[in-house]
Write a protein that binds this DNA or RNA. Structure first.
Length: 280
DNA sequence: TACCAGGTCGCTG
DNA sequence: CAGCGACCTGGT
């Protein structure tokens, strides 16, 4: 049983979390608003909240600064801290040397439970793009339309803020041709109807969610898969991008053993993706 | 200079 | 319905 003990006053908590590495999570390409501050400290932005994390290299102790309510009501779930990743790691076929190596390398990665709307927009931006530029565009979007938070940080903008701003306001953010997808999605998610649509997505199973998402302008199978995996926590979603496609072709010419990882192949996908990214 | 980056759209055969 | 070129943009 993992317990959260108050570390000191001022809202800093010390947690003992196995298989948790904030730096690997930051670099795993599933989220774009975790930034390093030096000294093994990181700032995490999500859903209008800000948390600071500190983790020594290789250390099992995690320090998190936020309100007690945010810790229990939000960040605990966001970081998926109730899931036992040791079980997943132990299930990996030891005869699969490539995957064993990838999972060993990526141990500490967790599949986050991110905000649905923020994840939809983030992965619309991600298409045919690279991670530094995705980050830059998202920060520009937040800076222009998001509510100011402490120390110059900004919340992710609401659907209505973007929808009401119109197409011209999306210029100059480095979005390129994706701006029209973002505007269309903001309109889709704005207002009471938009909220209801997002709610229906959250209640759908993976297959239904994929169907609903891919009906929207700019959302293909890959982006929908990322949304299912990184926001809706359908860990059986297995988004195939250029990296994963190359891995499958090179290391699994006979086909990837999806049966062996049925129900959580998305987590395996993330180890593969992170390992491939680190090789380059 | 071309090519690539966590792809998707629209058109063609 | 499968295949294929176009596509914003910033970095090698």
């Amino acid at each position: 049983m993992i317990t959260a003990a108050e570390y000191k006053t001022g809202g800093s908590f010390a947690l003992q979390i196995p298989d948790f590495d904030i730096r690997k999570i930051m670099d795993s390409g599933q989220c774009f608003r975790i930034t390093p501050n030096g000294g093994n400290t990181f700032t995490v932005l999500s859903s209008g909240r800000l948390a600071r994390l500190k983790q020594e290299n290789g250390g099992t102790q995690l320090l998190i600064s936020c309100s007690e309510e945010d810790l229990h009501r939000y960040w605990w779930n966001y970081f998926d801290l109730s899931t036992d990743y040791a079980v997943i790691l132990a299930s990996i076929d030891p005869k699969d040397q490539y995957l064993s190596q990838a999972a060993s390398y990526g141990r500490g990665i967790r599949i986050l439970r991110q905000d649905l709307w923020e994840t939809i927009i983030s992965f619309l931006i991600s298409q045919n793009n690279n991670i530094p530029r995705i980050r830059k565009s998202i920060e520009a979007l937040c800076g222009r339309f998001g509510k100011p938070l402490e120390e110059g940080y900004h919340a992710f903008p609401t659907p209505d803020a973007i929808a009401q701003a119109g197409p011209d306001a999306l210029q100059g953010l480095g979005l390129g041709y994706r701006d029209k997808y973002i505007l269309a999605m903001a309109k889709r998610c704005a207002g009471p109807d938009g909220k209801e649509w997002l709610r229906s997505l959250e209640q759908a199973d993976c297959r239904e969610a994929m169907s609903l998402l891919t009906q929207e302008y700019g959302v293909g199978i890959k982006v929908a898969g990322c949304i299912c995996l990184f926001a809706l926590h359908h860990v059986d979603a297995f988004p195939i991008d250029t990296h994963i496609r190359q891995i499958l072709e090179k290391h699994y010419p006979e086909g990837f053993p999806f049966d062996h990882y049925q129900g959580y192949s998305g987590i395996i996908q993330q180890y593969l993706f992170y390992y491939d990214l680190a090789q380059k």
